[in-house]
Design a protein around this nucleic acid. Structure first.
Lengths: 351, 351
DNA sequence: CTGAAAGCGCTTACAG
DNA sequence: CTGAAAGCGCTTACAG
């Protein structure tokens, strides 16, 4: 505060006026004006680290994600966009932390709990139950699409099982019977919930479930690229599914690529659906019918939940009580990639 | 360091061992072992803000961008991916700052120069010359695709003019003559350079330039969505260009959407090219022929340049001497959205 | 209503 | 080779 002092005349009462808090009762109008003027003239900025040291608050939230590895990821992009929007509105900064593998790199997470951020949002973490327990208790965490229900950690998620159910039910309503599910990474909560929804929709329509129509792939679209091609090579001459329900938009994009290469038309020969409604869903031709997850809004909610926890930690030392997940609704978005099934059965062509 | 002290026996010599620097000569092996053990057992983390206060180094870089407003943006996404990769490798954190409008919000930039970051990367800024001058001198800046040559600020860019030239020359080599350029935001350096390259390619091929074939659009693809449609409405029945050279991949995506709606086929009726080679270039069908800017690498370079400046500020107080731009080469990526022009002239259809 | 002091948690010279 | 002190730039009680 020496700047303020040197410039004006008074001491570090400058702090009071710059913070604006209980100012009116504190400083005479004359001196405060002098301080304000000096501050703007010297272009003074209170040092954030000094302030953080005493206030124990950095006004910064951490965002941890493994999605940046292996190339851009539009799922994470939407989420981060929402997080940045909201953190800006709450006058918070956001610092991005990246890791490759949640369980292997969990030590890095601990390292971030050193006062540089007030709390951390974990984006689609896949930590073990043990790892969650070992997280430093003094730092608030919020998960988005977390893989575990953890006490004291709020999870922001969406109703994925219902989304899958509705999407598949929609396909069935158009007359589809042979519906393939190209899955996300098996074992991830999100992927499993889609499978459950898929099965439930089939069951409700009295369509027998066939594990042959479940094709394992990955939410990482690069990994998913060859999956359908390999399946077609193995199943040449067999019946082609009438529709492909894909685990996310990226998988659907890869599926459409492969179908195009095989000379099959979407949706005339086969319908394709995505999940998430990211940028990718609009840039394919035809555009994707997909199940919208409100990712931007979910990112915003994560920020709000985290800030709530941060405040709680500040005032009382009581840990979070409510660790109920916040569940967002999903919404069917109909676009051109879906049509009623062709009248004649299509066969898997030679590649 | 009270933790270290309470646990071990010695005082804040713990600092020495935890920092690892001149350790060997400093502490006896016995005490250091005790300290190390205590530290790991207590899961001690040196407080980052306290450390930053004395070291005047936060080990964090700021990344300022206006790209998050108005929805996800794959250009920024690629850049940020590179920045996060590199900052991780250099053990730096990255905090994201967002703003709407560079010149209006420049005060926000000043606010970030408060010790919370050691330096700031400005992503595609459009600051006025005045605004650049007023940036706090104690904080190092690096720009990516900066709009001005500013003393003491290194700019990371790519050879966009040459990229445009090569892309258009490639189209010409396939027989195209009527090549439309759907531009980025007029006034932005990147957009202007593409126009210059476009004109030079035409001139070298002795193809007369026609301002009627320059269609102003925006790097923001949402803004560009209606542009071609409106042009087609105005020019119904006129000759359709044989090829569309678009200012970036997002514009090309919008162009392809509009062409598809109009019942025109790419590349049979009209060829389309993008610029950047972002995610979008691969998710269109057909995939885009485009001019690759190595955005990931450019992001990495920006981090390295910034860190160099930070070190310089630390040691000497001499400001940066080299403010020469770092220019990355571009690379033509041929994909399916380009073909030789159709033999018969196509007309703009009724929408 | 205002000033002088203590302290946030570290690191860095500086004595022993 | 090790310990005690000073100080980074703020804010927060606490005296006047």
């Amino acid at each position: 505060m020496d700047v303020g002092r040197a410039a004006g005349v008074s001491a570090m009462a400058a702090s009071a006026v710059l913070n604006g808090a209980k100012t009116s009762s504190r400083i005479s109008d004359e001196t405060r004006l002098r301080i304000l003027e000096a501050a703007t003239q010297l272009r003074y900025r209170p040092n954030a680290t000094a302030r953080a040291l005493v206030q124990r608050r950095m006004n910064t939230i951490g965002v941890a994600s493994s999605a940046w590895e292996g190339g851009p990821n539009s799922y994470a992009l939407e989420l981060v966009t929402g997080i940045l929007e909201a953190s800006g509105e709450y006058d918070q900064n956001a610092t991005m932390f990246t890791l490759r593998n949640w369980d292997k790199d969990v030590e890095r997470v601990h390292g971030w709990c050193d006062g540089r951020v007030d709390g951390i949002i974990l984006l689609a973490p896949t930590l073990s139950r043990e790892a969650y327990k070992l997280l430093p208790p003094h730092t608030p965490f919020v998960t988005v699409h977390g893989n575990q229900l953890v006490p004291h950690i709020v999870n922001v998620e969406s109703d994925e099982e219902r989304g899958a159910y509705e999407l598949v039910t929609y396909l069935i309503s158009l007359g589809h019977r042979r519906i393939m599910h190209v899955t996300g990474d098996r074992g991830l909560t999100g992927a499993e919930r889609r499978i459950v929804g898929y099965k439930r929709a089939l069951a409700d329509a009295r369509i027998p479930f066939s594990s042959k129509l479940v094709l394992p792939a990955s939410f990482n679209s690069d990994k998913s690229r060859p999956v359908l091609r390999e399946w077609m090579l193995r199943n040449e001459g067999e019946q082609l599914p009438q529709a492909m329900f894909c685990g996310n938009d990226g998988i659907a994009t890869m599926v459409m690529e492969t179908l195009a290469e095989a000379g099959l038309r979407v949706p005339d020969d086969v319908s394709v659906t995505g999940f998430d409604d990211t940028l990718a869903a609009r840039t394919t031709a035809p555009q994707l019918t997909t199940m919208r997850q409100p990712l931007r809004e979910m990112g915003r909610a994560a920020v709000e939940q985290l800030l709530k926890q941060v405040r709680r930690h500040e005032t009382s030392n009581s840990p979070a009580t409510d660790s109920n997940p916040i569940v967002f609704p999903v919404e069917l978005v109909k676009r051109a990639s879906v049509a009623p099934p062709p009248t004649a059965v299509r066969l898997v062509p030679k590649l």
